[in-house]
């Protein structure tokens, strides 16, 4: 009987030790493999800012935004060219859709949101900014978001500024189909519709952040 007890004890201890070691190993690796953002992540995404020098600006995280957070703000400069603000936004994990990171580029002279791209995607497929611009809901389907989007894209400073001010929400601006169409001919993966929601969140966060920190005071 004592022997049996001893073996049981040994079994349980061995398992417990293995489990603890595994959990510790994973938590260490998780912190090592955690991807933190640097301005290098902005390079090569948008051809108009190729060759720009990027300087990190402290992220102002006074206000929490829903759906994600701004993880990097950098100011890009180049002699004789417009200044740009590059932002990295990380949207929250939504079910099995992992965190996605979006880079957005705003021309600081016109205040126009010129380009958005995925840095890392939580699901397979891609999001094409140009396509979204062409297919965003507008006209008959006018929503505040669509108006804002059109304004943001106009490249005209007063229009852009008005758009940042009037902006309410981008939800519904881009049709679900847009994201699905741009899954690079890969069959739509789980998380495709969540990708759309994450994209809305990313736009909303950037819009709010830019308005709070760069437009409001002017």
């Amino acid at each position: 009987m004592a022997k049996a007890k001893e073996t049981t004890l040994r079994c349980v201890t061995t398992l417990a030790v293995i489990a603890v070691v595994c959990a510790l190993l994973l938590s260490v690796l998780n912190s090592v493999l955690y991807v933190s953002a640097t301005p290098d992540d902005l390079i090569g995404l948008y051809s108009a800012v190729d060759g720009y020098e990027w300087e990190v600006v402290d992220v102002n995280d006074d206000q929490p935004y829903s759906g994600g957070k701004v993880i990097l703000v950098a100011k890009g400069t180049m002699d004789g060219k417009d200044d740009y603000l590059g932002l990295l936004v990380q949207t929250e994990k939504n079910g099995k859709l992992n965190e996605s990171t979006y880079a957005m580029f705003i021309n600081m002279n016109t205040d126009a949101l010129e380009y958005a791209a995925f840095v890392t995607e939580g699901a397979t497929g891609g999001f094409n900014w140009q396509y979204a611009k062409e297919h965003s809901k507008s006209g008959d389907q006018v929503s505040t978001g669509a108006t804002a989007l059109t304004g943001l894209l106009s490249g005209d400073k007063s229009n852009s500024q008005a758009a940042w001010r009037e902006w309410e929400s981008f939800y519904g601006v881009i049709t679900d189909q847009t994201a699905l169409d741009y899954t690079d001919a890969v069959p739509a993966k789980t998380g495709a519709t969540r990708t759309v929601t994450a994209t809305y969140d990313a736009f909303n966060i950037v819009a709010r952040y830019y308005y709070d920190n760069f437009v409001k005071g002017e």
Partner: peptide
């Protein structure tokens, strides 16, 4: 080291760790 009685759960734990990594 691993007692043969609990070897399968032990293997699964180890494998799951490396899959996570």
């Amino acid at each position: 080291v691993i007692p043969s009685k609990v070897r399968i759960p032990a293997y699964i734990l180890i494998i799951a760790t490396f899959v996570t990594i």
